[in-house]
Design a protein around this nucleic acid. Structure first.
Lengths: 148, 148
DNA sequence: ATTCTTGCAAATCCTTTGCAGGTCA
DNA sequence: TGACCTGCAAAGGATTTGCAAGAAT
């Protein structure tokens, strides 16, 4: 796995090459994603950063803007929950899909080669230039299904 | 394929069994989905019904409510576009997934047995009780990729 | 010094809710 | 009649935008 200093350098280089500036806020958001395993809403990230760094001024607008930036640069990735918004995670890992529990909200990641290959075949079949793909399996996780 | 009169009867039966009432508005929305191939936003459906039946009073609220109802009853299905909302279609066909062109918005449907089976296997592997699943392949359709 | 960023408040977009009047069974 | 529905306007939640002040290069 990439270390934080290296990730940070990568981020700074990306900023520079786009004539963007390196700011405290951008760094904290990157750091947050690096240090926290899991999937977070912009609101989550905003609140948790405010709590951990009460002296840093940060607005939710900046969180949104930075997450968009990170996602466009391939450093973060998101899963969409429709009107309920998106959740973000560090996006450096290998591509993966998600199992989502409708009862407790738990998100499990998985990667499946068969599915990945099949998607490519389908795109090819329709002469589609695939730039992205997502798959969600919705249902009840082990714990929740047993509680019913 | 099911005929409209039969679909209508099915819908009426569903309404009755849920102590819901059969109304002009509900019928028009059902009819719209039956008659129009493709994927539509609630707004689309609302506008097109208003245009075709200027004398019928219908509000967008009712369109939302009815689409939700139809989806819950398995008569309609939707694809989510995140904050951009959902698009609905008649949901009587076999389950299928979508290819979505980011340039022209075109939506192509496909069904793939390998993927379907693989999804079941994955759910099983994680002891997940799958209630739904979606897959989207995002990219450029044949026409748009050639225009670049 | 210039350019880019920020936070705030206001605006937007899609969707839902409260409610009083209207319709269906 | 009574239960359910409707459209409207207002509310809601997530996200974006305009802007003047502030930070980075």
């Amino acid at each position: 796995m990439i270390t934080y200093p290296i990730l940070l350098e990568k981020f700074k280089a990306l900023l520079k090459s786009n004539s963007l500036k390196f700011t405290k806020q951008r760094e904290l958001i990157l750091k947050f994603l690096y240090e926290n395993e899991g999937h977070f809403t912009p609101e989550d990230i905003y609140m948790l950063i405010k709590k951990e760094y009460p002296d840093v001024n940060i607005g939710i607008t900046t969180v949104y803007r930075t997450l968009t930036l990170l996602e466009n640069e391939g450093i973060a990735s998101s899963i969409s929950f429709g009107v309920q918004g998106k959740k973000y995670e560090l996006g450096l890992k290998k591509h993966h899909d998600h199992l989502i529990c409708t009862s407790c909200g738990k998100i499990i990641e998985f990667y499946d080669d068969t599915i990945e290959r099949q998607q490519e075949k389908i795109a090819e079949k329709y002469n589609f230039k695939m730039t992205d793909h997502t798959m969600k399996i919705i249902g009840l996780c082990e714990k929740c299904r047993n509680q019913k």
